[in-house]
Design a protein around this nucleic acid. Structure first.
Lengths: 114, 114
DNA sequence: TATTCCGGTTACCAATAGGTAACCACAAAA
DNA sequence: TTTTGTGGTTACCTATTGGTAACCGGAATA
């Protein structure tokens, strides 16, 4: 899910896209925001994601230093995820994407719903 | 290559990711920048992309209003692509991703190459 | 005793993305 | 006559992504 050729590019922008340039990671980071959140919550909040994919994405985000994983040795297990400094620094970028979309998106939605 | 479920979300951020959240589109937009550029140049400049994928991505970017396509009725054909206002407005976001990566990326590159 | 909770993992299968190579038009140049 | 240049398209095949459902531990609860 990470593109190795992109990650090994000598262009820093291409490397960034190789790391976070897929559809799930920005969504996950955006949902996390500044809070600490559990695996099950992410699974419940993010539409259409499967546990398998969520697990994989979280693992990669952790490997790339965007988030931190805290596993509490309890029964049943409890695991919390939290954005790292690097991950938090990415939030304003997501915010600007949101604003960009709101400004330029051509609305294809019906004006009203019955 | 566009995720329809994302594009039909009621969350503007999710829709944005559904539109530009794949690995090729940010790369293409970044390469285009403010200039007007021909298909063959994009094909030559962007590493590892195939003409088929480049064609598809350009078509989607045009449909989503990020770029404009100018086909000159010449033989041999000449086609130029240029970012629209919406596409140009996306450039600063890509720039901030670049800066974010430079600041936080953990270098796994060797310090020197023999 | 069976079930629930939680955060996964695994095996298996289906859908999608993406690559390759051939082909196209048509005019100009060799 | 053949080749070149340009921006694709197409058929075909493979690689990757992603989904589903079952399973796990181990204590608490019913």
């Amino acid at each position: 899910m990470r593109d190795e050729r992109f990650c090994n590019s000598n262009c820093p922008f291409t490397r960034a896209i190789g790391t976070i340039g897929n559809k799930w990671k920005p969504i996950i980071i955006n949902v996390m925001g500044t809070r600490s959140i559990r695996f099950g919550q992410l699974d419940a909040i993010i539409p259409h994601i499967s546990r398998k994919v969520l697990t994989e994405q979280l693992k990669e985000l952790e490997e790339d230093g965007l988030l931190e994983r805290y596993a509490y040795k309890e029964i049943p297990p409890r695991v919390e995820y939290r954005l790292s400094e690097k991950g938090l620094a990415f939030l304003p970028i997501l915010e600007s994407i949101k604003e960009w979309n709101l400004k330029y998106e051509v609305s294809t939605m019906p004006a009203m719903e019955a």
